[in-house]
């Protein structure tokens, strides 16, 4: 029996008819919505390459059944830059060499966005490392990744303060 679901992906409503309930959010994004920035690494919740934000929280898209997320708001790596302007987390990954081959990078960046929003790691490198423990990088770019997250968090805090002053 076909299942109709509706998601908001990067601010755009997507109505999708699933012929089969087995589709994960990851496969839906890549195969049905055409957004291949979210990567399929292990497909078992162990590597974090598929990390996206669902209703503002980072999760593994490979272990979420799309049909169960009917109505959810999804943010992927493609929805992060605004008007051709990189998100501060993306810019920080470039500035700090937070990647080598780049395969894990969309998941790393979405996880970092989630971590900064969660707001508990602060500027403590040990807490940031623990907070990024769900994302593996087989090139071993961890040192640059941690520096990128620290820097991006500072940039975001500065711009949040500026926003408050403007308001």
């Amino acid at each position: 029996m076909p299942l109709s679901i509706s998601l908001v992906v990067n601010g755009v409503r997507k109505d999708v008819v699933l012929e089969d309930p087995r589709v994960t959010l990851l496969d839906l994004l890549r195969e049905r919505v055409g957004l291949t920035g979210t990567k399929k690494g292990c497909d078992r919740g162990q590597c974090g390459a598929c990390t996206v934000l669902v209703d503002g929280r980072r999760i593994n898209a490979c272990l979420a059944l799309a049909v169960s997320l009917d109505g959810a708001d999804v943010l992927t790596i493609e929805g992060l830059a605004k008007g051709g302007q990189l998100d501060p987390v993306q810019a920080a990954f470039i500035a700090h060499d937070g990647f080598q081959c780049g395969f894990c990078t969309p998941g790393q960046i979405m996880s970092a966005v989630g971590l900064i929003r969660e707001g508990e790691a602060g500027d403590d490198p040990e807490r940031i490392r623990e907070g990024m423990s769900g994302n593996l990088c087989r090139c071993g770019a961890y040192v640059g990744i941690i520096e990128a997250v620290r820097d991006a968090r500072k940039q975001l805090a500065i711009s949040a303060n500026e926003d408050r002053r403007v308001a």
Binding site: G45, G48, T51, R57, R58, I59, N60, L63, A64, S111, G114, L115, E118, G131, S133, G134, N135
Partner: peptide, 9 residues
């Protein structure tokens, strides 16, 4: 337990 992504779900 697990990872931040898994704990969120």
């Amino acid at each position: 337990g697990a990872s931040p992504q898994l704990r969120n779900a």
